[in-house]
Design a protein around this nucleic acid. Structure first.
Lengths: 146, 146
DNA sequence: CTACTTGTTGATAATCATTTTCCTTAAAAT
DNA sequence: ATTTTAAGGAAAATGATTATCAACAAGTAG
């Protein structure tokens, strides 16, 4: 069974377990999230869902994204100067590398972060619940184009 | 000479070097930034500046914050779900610890990050220019209050 | 299979931080 | 003191996101 299908099933299960109804639009949104290899914006999810369900409203995407986020099935990457981006495949905190030219977002490998979090909690007395680590730069493709 | 004065002089110098005019409102904003130990929002800078210059406009704060940011004299911490916060004392990328209850922001010590950045650049081929690392949690004060 | 209950959708209006506009004011250079 | 032009102030515009609400349909009980 391909990865996107497993992921999609998991998200459907989470919805069912929490008494959310399974609607065609909702399934279409899950499909986009599960199959997306990038980190789509609400707008881009919207565009893809509209292919199958042309009357879909942007508000529906926003509402469903909020539901999935609350069920911890979706990681939100908020940007104050751009629309937010979402990761439906790794819905837990992890670092990102963001190209400031083409806005592409990648998931680098990075393990050292867990240790840093422990250390930090000890130093500051904070009860750390989440983190956000973004690196910004220019991706190899965009470097070549310049 | 106290730290805030040194910092303020540096910001004034940067403005002068770039042919920006020194106005009373501008100086008042610099003063707030240089003396602030926290990470003020535009709104809170505004409140403080208005004490001396009651007719000051919020737009003026926004415009000056943008100028200082472009001169690399101010670090902007953008939040998609809240107003942005600013650091006029350490205007370079560095990690933050953010209390999700009282919205207090601290600067923890953290050196391991430089190495991670080098490593990442090698792995991904990105030319890394900036980064952002935020930890979220509950500060000791807020833990005690609960 | 049908009807009911209630969550969901779609369209639109509202929100809110931030940016823009444009006219007036005042730095700073001559 | 005069001139030039950036900066300030007030208000309107922007744009992503959220709220509202009537019409609809998922799920369930009969």
């Amino acid at each position: 069974m391909p990865d996107p299908e497993i992921r999609m099933r998991k998200m459907v299960d989470a919805l069912r377990e929490n008494q959310y109804r399974i609607t065609p639009q909702r399934l279409a949104i899950l499909k986009v999230l599960a199959e997306s290899k990038g980190h789509p914006s609400v707008e881009s999810i919207y565009e893809q869902v509209k292919i199958r369900y042309p009357t879909t409203s942007l508000a529906t995407i926003y509402k469903n994204v909020a539901v999935l986020k609350n069920l911890d099935q979706l990681l939100e990457l908020g940007f104050s100067d751009d629309s937010n981006r979402y990761d439906g495949n790794k819905p837990y905190d992890h670092p990102h590398v963001i190209c400031t030219v083409c806005r592409k977002i990648l998931d680098p490998d990075m393990s050292a972060l867990e240790d840093m979090t422990q250390e930090l909690a000890r130093e500051t007395g904070f009860a750390i619940t989440r983190h956000r680590l973004d690196f910004f730069g220019i991706c190899p493709d965009c470097q070549a184009r310049q």
